[in-house]
Nucleic acid binder design. Structure first.
Lengths: 72, 72
DNA sequence: ACATTATGTATAGTTTAGTTTACATTTTTG
DNA sequence: CAAAAATGTAAACTAAACTATACATAATGT
């Protein structure tokens, strides 16, 4: 299921942003809470479009929010 | 079909990298040529994972290769 | 103790990314 | 010009992202 090539710092970023809840992040990113849960837990990685929107919520670059973990 | 929220500079980047062909980029990114064609033409946007790999081929950040065109 | 809010988990269904195969058209090279 | 290489297009298929609904648990507050 989780291919796990992509990890992220969403959970930490939420807490550094006024204790933003999953629901609040979901609303700002324009997706459902389930999508945030799944991405935050690493069940799957977001589309590029959603990655842009999430990064924008935190005022960060995509690379600062998501990491591509190389499997060589 | 194409929602067109994401645009990119892949075509220009290929020509600035030793006239790299679509097939060569596809091989380096680990996908088929059809996938490169579709992304380059904007038929659809890549997964976040593939966006990372394509950006890496060109030694650029994701933001330097792909642009999120806000529809407000 | 009770209500409320935030989070975790699961499953079925829709949408979109990506593959495969195949062929047509354009560009490059001998 | 003719051959080869590069690019465009298309359709049927698979895989993965995302939604919707539902319920369960943990934490917070009155």
């Amino acid at each position: 299921m989780g291919k796990d090539a992509i990890s992220n710092h969403i959970r930490n970023l939420r807490f550094h942003h006024n204790e933003m809840t999953q629901q609040q992040l979901a609303d700002k990113a324009g997706v459902t809470r389930q999508t945030i849960v799944a991405i935050e837990k690493g069940n799957y990685s977001p589309s590029l479009e959603l990655a842009f929107r999430i990064a924008r919520v935190f005022g960060k670059s995509i690379e600062e929010v998501f990491q591509y973990d190389d499997k060589q």
